[in-house]
């Protein structure tokens, strides 16, 4: 029983790790994304550059993913 609760807790924690970092990435990408769309509207050749900038905050969620994987496989 205790072990099952423990597994459940790990799953919840992993979910939180992904979910919250995802939220954070989203918030950070919001303004960058809006700016990127604005820039592309004026000058379509900026697509590549803005895309590179836009995905930078994604690192946050990637580390969330790492933590979640570690939790599930290690604990």
């Amino acid at each position: 029983m205790a072990a099952e609760i423990g597994t459940g807790m790990v799953a919840i924690a992993a979910g939180l790790a992904i979910g919250l970092t995802g939220l954070a990435s989203g918030l950070a990408e919001r303004d960058v994304g809006a700016a990127a769309v604005g820039a592309i509207t004026e000058d379509a050749t900026l697509f590549g550059k803005t895309m590179v900038l836009m995905v930078l905050p994604e690192t946050i969620v990637i580390f969330g993913l790492v933590v979640a994987i570690l939790m599930i496989f290690v604990m």
């Binding site: 919001r30 809006a34 700016a35 769309v37 604005g38 820039a39 509207t41 004026e42 000058d43 900026l46």
Partner: peptide, 13 residues
């Protein structure tokens, strides 16, 4: 963010 990005792109032209 959107408006300023557009304006900056305009300014560069």
């Amino acid at each position: 963010a959107y408006t300023v990005a557009r304006v900056k792109a305009k300014k560069s032209h």
